[in-house]
Design a protein around this nucleic acid. Structure first.
Length: 501
RNA sequence: GGAGGCGUAGCUCAGUCGGUAGAGCAUCGGACUUUUAAUCCGUGGGUCGUGGGUUCAAGUCCCACCGCCUUCACCA
């Protein structure tokens, strides 16, 4: 075979999906020179079940279909050779399209080439768009272009690749051969793009902060540890975006956000991956009320960007995103779900013991928070903003002027999942230093907050404008908007252990 | 880390009471100019996750380990 299998250049390619949309251009030409319209809707790629295409063709008289000249490229996912004809199903990331290769039409040389095609090969085809006798939209090949060979056997043509481990370790096969996988990840990019558009549309600028930190701050999580050789300095991977974005507020970036990866050295589950994507946005002169409105807008825009209405299903459960989302105070929900007076620390401690929570030596608000997680969070079908948290569990949040025991914070819950977390940012350096110090007491060394971030306090001493701050877990939002049960379905390459030999 | 499930051909899966390792698809060879998971004829393909143990004999029973899934724990 004198065809270079690795070097064919194939410019000006049209996507298979676009080619399929052109099927309305096909004319059925009769022998007397007149033409008939093909009796299919222009956007319909499948034959109409009511119509017997063979019979229609017979009734219409002998003639031929003349479609536009098209050029397609993709991977061969199905091959049906029948003597001197070969039917292929060609797949690109927009759609599948059938190719018909006839020996008389493409010539001996290209037909010999077609005889060497394997499932999984990448090829390009020049030809005319038309319909076969059964009515299927097809490119009738005139020239073949061989692009790349696959050396591995593809998955089973009907059942696909179902083994979970193989799907994750060989995501490229999952993307190509399993229905809906590509759609989910395309939806993810649309959601991410939509979030950027929403924020930049409101005057935000996007920045890239450092991922290597000397102190892992902005959240309570165990960090991954690493080391810089030339500086002989221990470093940690960031667990949140917060503290550097606030430094930028100090510097005068009045609306700033980052959308990027954070790393937490903790357990793995259907809702946790060690590295995940977070979006944090900070708006000077805003507060948590402003951030609630922004959160709604981000979610609604993302729904629109993925072509969905405000009423969707997740995991068989309905979600109604019709704004405004419900807003309930922490204490109200506590009273309602835990059936205990949210002000009665003793009663809460008794309930904690009853629930099997270790209560001794903990701050009453910490106990309250754990009781809240046990009794309230699972019941929050949402979308619901839980607002006004106990101040002592919110070290980076501004207190209500009317009640310093309450922090201006909200979390957005949907079906028990925490999707967003936001507050009116604390910009009092004296109080911030004091709260860091309080956090230090009784905390284990590996806990990230157990280090005084004097550099951040110094930043605050230079004056941070009052601001609202918002964090959204992108992976969880994508899970909800793509009806995905597991975070592994929305992370292209989730962390896996070394493969067994 | 605890509990439960799973691991057999490239893929999807059977494998009985412990007694010669099986099927479909895919591969390879042949026939076929309108197929739709094409069809028909023929063909090759295995360290049964890894390592031990019991036994005359282990894919099967026992132990340890590796990996994946679920669930709990952990998790601002």
């Amino acid at each position: 075979m004198d065809i270079d299998p690795w070097g064919h250049y194939f410019p000006n390619r049209q996507w298979n999906g676009e080619v399929r949309r052109r099927c309305g251009e096909i004319k059925y030409q009769l022998q007397d020179g007149t033409t008939l319209e093909i009796p299919f809707p222009a956007d319909d790629s499948a034959p109409s079940p009511e119509l017997d295409y063979r019979q229609w063709k017979k009734d219409a008289g002998t003639g031929e279909e003349i479609g536009p000249q098209v050029r397609v490229a993709g991977r061969i996912v199905l091959m049906r050779p029948t003597g001197k004809l070969v039917f292929l199903k060609l797949r690109d990331w927009t759609a599948d399209i059938q190719i018909l290769i006839g020996k008389a039409q493409v010539g001996d040389r290209d037909f010999e080439l077609a005889g060497n095609f394997d499932l999984g090969d990448w090829i390009g085809v020049d030809g005319r768009l038309g319909r076969t006798n059964t009515g299927e939209l097809t490119v009738f090949a005139e020239n073949l272009h061989f692009m790349c060979k696959t050396l591995e056997t593809p998955p089973e043509k009907y059942l696909g690749l179902t083994n979970t481990e193989s799907r994750l370790r060989q995501r490229y096969l999952d993307l190509t051969y399993n229905e809906g996988v590509m759609d989910t990840f395309m939806a993810r990019t649309k959601i991410v793009q939509s979030i950027r558009n929403t924020l930049t549309g409101r005057g935000y600028c996007e920045i890239e902060g450092p991922t290597l930190h000397t102190i892992a701050g902005g959240a309570a999580a165990r960090p991954f540890m690493t080391h810089h050789n030339a500086l002989d300095m221990p470093l940690v991977l960031r667990i949140a975006l917060e503290l550097h974005l606030k430094r930028l507020l100090v510097g005068g970036m009045e609306r700033v956000f980052e959308l990027g990866r954070v790393y937490r050295n903790e357990g793995i589950s259907t809702r946790h991956n060690p590295e995940f994507t977070m979006m944090e946005a900070y708006e000077a002169f805003g507060n948590y009320e402003v951030m609630m409105d922004l959160t709604e807008q981000i979610v609604l825009d993302a729904l629109a960007a993925t072509g969905q209405s405000t009423k969707i299903n997740w995991n068989g459960l309905p979600i109604d995103f019709t704004p405004p989302f419900q807003r309930r105070t922490y204490n109200d929900l506590f009273q309602e779900c835990a059936q205990v007076d949210p002000e009665d620390d003793d009663a809460i401690a008794r309930l904690a013991v009853h629930l099997g929570i270790e209560a001794t030596g903990k701050h009453p608000d910490v106990i309250k928070s754990e009781v809240f997680e046990h009794t309230v969070e699972d019941k929050l079908a949402g979308p619901i903003f839980v607002i006004d948290y106990p101040a002592s569990i919110c070290p980076l949040t501004k207190r209500k002027t009317s009640n310093p025991q309450v922090a201006e914070r909200f979390e957005l819950f949907i079906h028990g999942m925490e999707v967003a977390n936001a507050y009116t940012e604390l910009n009092d350096p004296i109080l911030q230093e004091e709260l860091f110090r309080t956090q230090l007491e009784g905390q284990a060394d590996e806990d990230s907050m157990a280090k005084m971030d004097t550099d951040f306090v110094l930043a605050l001493r230079n004056g941070m404008p009052p601001a609202g701050g918002l964090g959204i877990g992108i992976d969880r939002l994508v899970m909800l908007l793509t009806d995905s049960k597991s975070i592994r379905d929305v992370v292209l390459f989730p962390l896996m252990r070394n493969q067994a030999d």
